[in-house]
Design a protein around this nucleic acid. Structure first.
Length: 560
RNA sequence: UGCCCGGUGGUGUAAUGGCAGCACGAGUGGUUCUGGCCCAUUUAGUCAAGGUUCGAGUCCUUGCCGGGCAGCCA
């Protein structure tokens, strides 16, 4: 495989940049979110591209809030977005910018365009503009206001700015070509009257620039060389280019790539918002959400998100990435880094009948991370009464079930071999207690006589255990593409009713008393878990399941 | 029936006219004090038809299929 020196697979944007850099170009990109919602994993892809290429080529990447629509934007989002960008691992140094800081300059440039006879004030209503625009197959017609004098345009535009006219009563439009096959070139609106206070600038403006007019200027002012954006803006590139060349100012190159789609979730801000507003999830940071705040709360390490973005590549193909690939990236990082601990989430009491009542403290050495010897070991207390996982015992085990059953012997991890000699059921027939014998010779987990067991179980000493709530999360939707085009049903019909399940009375090994809220742990044989950033405390621990371990037993069981 | 973009295993991608690779998933086997990890192995692909060429996934033509575009959203 032909890999770049960086070790990254080639893609079309890197190729373009490489060629430009070979010709002496520098690399300066920007990540330009609108502060009207929270960042999600789709934005993470964009950030990996924007910040990633800048870093790779020794350039810079700005963080710029594209806040040209006061009706939707808020400071709350500005702060949340910065927090998320930092968390993901990107740094904009001192290059934090706001489109709204360029409003004055944009206005001057608009005046310049009017003076050139390339922009005019139009009195058409939104309906008229739409009607005059024509259709996909028919050319548009010129606005009756298209030939106003430059003086009149200048006067009107100035008065629009100061709030003399009603919202929507006038616009400033670029004079391009009403018959252009690309609809974006049919005299697009550059300014609209919106007498709405801006979250940063208050009431100083009564006209606001549209994206098409503003974005290229923002890029130009900042000296951006590559303006990377998603495919939605492909049809807008001719307009981006038209404005910049008419203005004759620094002209970045816009390159579009396909945005991320992930199976079993939705990505649009509108849809995520509707999940929040309908109460189907608790908030933007619900651990099931594909938002960065949700993933963080879930326990996903930022490194996993970055490696996922690296793995899916950069193309112009509209694709649907398999969430299984994302899950793989999460497990891959966590497997190498997560400290191992033992926790029983569905406890079944076990009494070691031949274990002395008055035994001295019995502490065993447990490995913190078999993938990382430097993580060391810890002590885990053993005692006469323990808990094991309910699913690790069966009265009548099927053929390939290796765990505990009547008369069977298994190993308790890092502790002893135990054999089940009896079990106790309640009136409902539910097993409520196991009675086992241990072999003192197997202390530490190995038999001196060399005999083997087929299973190793995790366990927690009852008297030492910490009680905890454990929250199990799963994919938010049952359907691969909940919002597939052509499907008229509401995407929310496909919500996975089992995507969240809270378990109480779970038993944790005592070392978790001091669980670090910023660490995702592996509960051995179960999965990865992180203290909930909102509800967890050392007095009443709450852990969120980030992701389960791969489970070939569950898979085999499911097949029968 | 206008304009723009795109079609490589189930999924995501690489191959820049020269052996179609990689990762995920799925299957099988091995190993194992986590039914995890790891290792080995199997499965499976260039939308179609022409053309250029010694040679085409790659270049050209036509067709087919998919996506986007008619906000005073971004």
């Amino acid at each position: 495989m032909n890999a770049e020196p960086s070790g990254k697979p080639q893609n079309f944007i890197r190729e373009i940049i490489e060629n430009s850099v070979a010709g002496g170009a520098s690399v300066h990109t920007r990540f330009p979110p609108e502060p009207n919602g929270h960042l999600h994993i789709g934005h993470a892809k964009a950030m990996c591209i924007d910040f990633g290429f800048a870093k790779e080529f020794g350039g810079k990447c700005n963080l710029r809030f594209d806040d040209t629509n006061p009706a939707k934007e808020d400071m709350e989002y500005v702060e949340a977005i910065q927090r998320d960008v930092r968390w993901l691992g990107f740094d904009w140094d001192d290059r934090l910018f706001f489109a709204s800081d360029y409003f004055e300059r944009m206005f001057e440039l608009a005046v310049e365009l009017i003076r050139k006879g390339k922009a005019y004030v139009c009195d058409q209503t939104p309906e008229e503009i739409r009607e005059y625009r024509g259709s996909l197959t028919e050319p548009g017609r010129k606005s009756p206001f298209r030939n106003r004098s430059i003086e009149e345009n200048l006067d009107l535009f100035e008065r629009m700015r100061t709030g003399e006219f009603e919202d929507g009563s006038k616009t400033l439009r670029a004079k391009i070509d009403m018959t252009a096959p690309n609809l974006n070139l049919r005299d697009p609106v550059m300014y609209r009257i919106v007498r709405f206070d801006h979250y940063r600038l208050g009431d100083s403006w009564r006209v606001y620039p549209t994206y098409d007019w503003a974005h290229g200027i923002e890029d130009s002012i900042e000296g951006i060389t590559f303006s990377l954006c998603d495919l939605d803006f492909e049809n807008h590139r001719p307009l981006y280019d038209w404005f910049l060349s008419e203005l004759d100012i620094h002209h970045p190159r816009q390159i579009e790539f396909a945005r991320l789609n992930l199976s079993y979730t939705v990505m649009s801000k509108r849809k995520l918002m509707s999940l929040v507003e309908s109460g189907m999830v608790s908030d933007w940071d619900d651990p099931r959400m594909p938002t960065l705040s949700g993933l963080r709360r879930r326990g996903v390490p930022p490194e996993a998100i970055r490696s996922f973005c690296e793995t899916i590549g950069v193309t112009k193909v509209n694709s649907l990435s398999d969430i299984a690939l994302f899950e793989h990236c999460v497990r891959d990082v966590l497997n190498k880094t997560a400290p191992r601990v033992m926790a029983v989430i569905d406890p079944l009491k076990v009494v070691i009948v031949n274990y002395p009542e008055d035994a001295a403290d019995d502490e065993l050495d447990a490995v913190n991370n078999p993938e990382d010897p430097s993580a060391g070991t810890r002590k885990v207390p053993f005692s006469k009464t323990l808990y094991i996982e309910r699913s690790d015992f069966m009265i009548d085990p099927p053929k390939k079930f290796f765990r505990l059953g009547p008369g069977r012997e298994v190993r308790l991890r890092y502790a002893y071999f135990i054999r089940c000699v009896d079990y106790v059921q309640n009136e409902e027939g539910e097993v409520v207690e196991l009675r086992c014998e241990y072999d003192p010779e197997t202390r530490g987990g190995n038999a001196p006589d060399g005999r083997k067991v087929k299973a190793t179980l995790h366990w927690v000493s009852a008297e030492h255990a910490i009680d905890a709530e454990v929250r199990l999360y799963d994919r938010l939707f049952l359907k691969e593409r909940p919002d597939a085009p052509g499907d008229d049903s509401d995407f929310r019909e496909y919500l996975n009713p089992d995507s969240f399940k809270a378990l109480c009375g779970c038993k944790l090994e005592p070392s978790l008393k001091n669980a670090d809220p910023d660490i995702t742990y592996q509960f051995e044989r179960l999965g990865y878990f992180r203290p909930d950033c909102v509800d967890h405390s050392s007095e009443s621990p709450v852990f969120n399941r980030t992701i389960s371990l791969r489970d070939s037993w569950a898979k085999a069981k499911g097949k029968t």
